[in-house]
């Protein structure tokens, strides 16, 4: 356990720079987006009111107040989120492959640590989770800050304030990343963890058997996905909705746990018996 924590910390220190860069880009671009979008709106308001001589009230009914929605739906806001998602997706592969590249192949050291090799797997998957949740947590902190910037930028009468929850529920993409209930958070990120564990297994297959491993990895992933969705497929096409939704839900959770456990076991087996430096 202690060694696991040490490894988690060690792995985190290896990614911390990338992580900080992602946070930085998110902060800068999103805040810039708030400022630019607000300015755009205010400039338009100025133009309409002062040059086209539209009364203020008329302008507000025609163009609406400025709210966070204008920002949330812009590339300024969504772009950094997409970048972070891509960064994490990329790092899922990099977290393994970086140990095998270069002349200082670090995987020697990792495999020679006097601890169970399961810990290597757990430490890496924990890091993906920490990174992901870290980005989510940061976005949750950023939102109220950005709302504050918006308040400074746009006068009261032109502004329509939104709560954090409302911002999040207003676009579905954001609502997937930050679901509106804690149970969903666990379910979504649990599913994500399962997906990452499948990918890790496929990567370790490639590392163990090279070309053949890629094929094995693809087959393993396909089987894992099929096993996971098999209850839904059966329900839909064979069983004619035999299960009540609640039962299907429980079965799905059981399937997810099975797939996760199989991936962990398989990865452990590969690390112990099949992987090669």
């Amino acid at each position: 356990m202690k060694k696991y924590l040490k490894l988690v910390n060690f792995e985190f220190n290896r990614v911390v720079k990338l992580f900080i860069v992602l946070l930085g880009i998110t902060l800068v671009v999103q805040v810039a987006g708030v400022i630019i979008k607000s300015k755009d709106y205010l400039n338009m308001a100025n133009e309409k009111i002062n040059e086209d001589l539209i009364p203020k009230a008329q302008f507000l009914t025609d163009y609406g107040q400025f709210s966070f929605l204008h920002i949330i739906r812009s590339l300024w806001f969504v772009g950094p989120i997409a970048l972070c998602a891509a960064g994490v997706a990329f790092y899922i592969f990099l977290i393994w492959y970086r140990d095998w590249v270069g002349k200082n192949i670090f995987v020697y050291r990792l495999l020679m640590l006097p601890t169970t090799r399961f810990n290597i797997f757990f430490a890496k998957i924990s890091n993906i989770l920490i990174m992901t949740l870290g980005l989510v947590a940061f976005q949750l902190i950023l939102l109220p800050l950005e709302a504050m910037v918006l308040k400074w930028m746009v006068p009261d009468e032109f502004r329509n304030d939104m709560g954090i929850e409302e911002m999040i529920t207003s676009i579905p993409e954001l609502n997937i990343i930050i679901p509106s209930s804690f149970v969903e958070l666990i379910l979504y990120y649990g599913a994500g963890l399962m997906a990452v564990s499948i990918l890790f297994t496929a990567i370790l297959m490639e590392r163990s058997f090279k070309w053949k491993g890629i094929i094995a990895g693809v087959i393993y992933s396909a089987i894992a996905v099929i096993v996971f969705i098999s209850p839904v497929l059966l329900q839909e096409f064979v069983l004619n909705s035999y299960f009540y939704p609640m039962e299907l839900f429980v079965i799905e959770i059981v399937m997810a746990v099975i797939v996760l456990a199989a991936s962990v076991w398989m990865s452990g087996f590969l690390l112990k018996k099949k992987v090669t430096v």
Partner: peptide, 19 residues
């Protein structure tokens, strides 16, 4: 096994530490 690495060490032909 995992404990074995406390009593045997390998010095590979290249340094295996993070540069």
């Amino acid at each position: 096994k995992e404990k074995t690495f406390e009593k045997i060490s390998l010095i590979p032909d290249a340094l295996t530490m993070i540069p």
